[in-house]
C-alpha cells in the first residue's frame, strides 16, 4: 500500500498490566444486536488494530470503551474503573482515554491552540498559560506548531487530523482510541497522519485503532482483531493474521481488501 508508514518497530514492549478488560459484553441498538459476547483484554502498551467489513461493530466497540455508546450487558473495566451509569466513573475514564474520529470533530469556532487547550483548562483545571504551553508542545510533535492560531477550517484534512491527535494528547491519556482516522483523508495525507500514529506507538502508548490501513497494521500492531456481525471472529499477531488467516470470513475479507 502506498501509504505504508516507515520505521515502525513491531517488537515494542508490552507490559503484563491489564488496562482494559471487556467481558461478555453485549450491545443493542433498539432491537438490533450490534455487539455479541465481546471479550477483549488489553495490556498496557499494546497496539491493537481492529478491522472488518462495514457494519461489523468495530467502531461501536471502541466507542463503548469511553462510553460514547452504552453497553447493555457484560462488563467494561478501564484502568480499574468499571463503566456503569455512574457519571463519576465515566468522567474518570474519559480523562484517561483519548479519541480521534474519522471526521476529526475539531471545534470549528476555536483556533487550533484553543482546541488543544480547552479540555485541560476546563476538565483538569490547568492554568491557561500552562495548558497553552502543553498544547504547543504537542502541536510541535505532530509538526504543525505554525498553524496554532488558525481555525480548523483553514487547514487540510491531514493537518486537521494531526491537530485532533494533539488535542487528545494534551489530556495526557493512557489509552488512545482511533476510529478510522484516515478514512476521510486524501491519499497523500494519509501518510502524515500514520507517521504521527507510529511515533505515538513507539513511545509506548496503548492504542486501539479501527482502520483499513493494513500496512499500518502489519508494521505497528502487535495484535489484529477481525470482527464481523458484531463478534470478534479472529485475533492474532499481524504476521499470523495476514499470512495464515484461520477463519473463512477473515480470508474473504483479506482477499477483498488486499486485492488492489
Amino acid at each position: 500500500m502506498s501509504s505504508q508508514p516507515e520505521g515502525a518497530a513491531p517488537d515494542l514492549q508490552v507490559s503484563d498490566e491489564l488496562i482494559i478488560k471487556i467481558k461478555d459484553m453485549h450491545k443493542w441498538y433498539g432491537s438490533f444486536h450490534v455487539l455479541r459476547d465481546v471479550n477483549l483484554d488489553v495490556y498496557r502498551g499494546e497496539r491493537i488494530v481492529i478491522c472488518g467489513p462495514s457494519g461489523s461493530g468495530k467502531s461501536t466497540l471502541i466507542r463503548c470503551i469511553n462510553r460514547l455508546e452504552e453497553h447493555q450487558q457484560g462488563d467494561i473495566i478501564v484502568e480499574n474503573v468499571e463503566l456503569t451509569n455512574d457519571l463519576k466513573n465515566i468522567d474518570a475514564i474519559r480523562r484517561e482515554v483519548g479519541m480521534c474520529f474519522q471526521h476529526f470533530n475539531l471545534f470549528p469556532h476555536l483556533t487550533v491552540l484553543e482546541n488543544c487547550s480547552l479540555a485541560p483548562i476546563w476538565v483538569k483545571q490547568v492554568p491557561r498559560k500552562e495548558a497553552e504551553a502543553t498544547a504547543m508542545k504537542y502541536l510541535e510533535r505532530v509538526k504543525i506548531p505554525e498553524q496554532a492560531d488558525k481555525f480548523p477550517g483553514q487547514l487540510s484534512g491531514g493537518q486537521q487530523q494531526r491537530v485532533a491527535i494533539a488535542r487528545s494528547l494534551c489530556m495526557n491519556p493512557k489509552i488512545m482510541l482511533f476510529d478510522e482516522p484516515t478514512s476521510a483523508l486524501d491519499p497523500e495525507m494519509i501518510k502524515e497522519v500514520l507517521d504521527v500514529m507510529v511515533e505515538l506507538a513507539k513511545e509506548g502508548m496503548t492504542m486501539l485503532c479501527v482502520t483499513h490501513e493494513m500496512g499500518f497494521a502489519k508494521t505497528v500492531a502487535n495484535r489484529v482483531i477481525f470482527m464481523d456481525g458484531g463478534q470478534i471472529i479472529e485475533e492474532n499477531n499481524p504476521h499470523e493474521f495476514f499470512d495464515n488467516p484461520q477463519h473463512e470470513r477473515t480470508k474473504l475479507f483479506l482477499s477483498q481488501i488486499l486485492a488492489h
Binding site: 462510553r67 460514547l68 482515554v97 474520529f101 471526521h103 480547552l118 476538565v123
Partner: peptide, 13 residues
C-alpha cells in the same frame, strides 16, 4: 454535526 458533542464528551467535558 453529532461529532461535536461526541468530541466534547470524549474529552470529559
Amino acid at each position: 454535526p453529532k461529532g461535536q458533542i461526541e468530541a466534547a464528551d470524549s474529552m470529559g467535558l
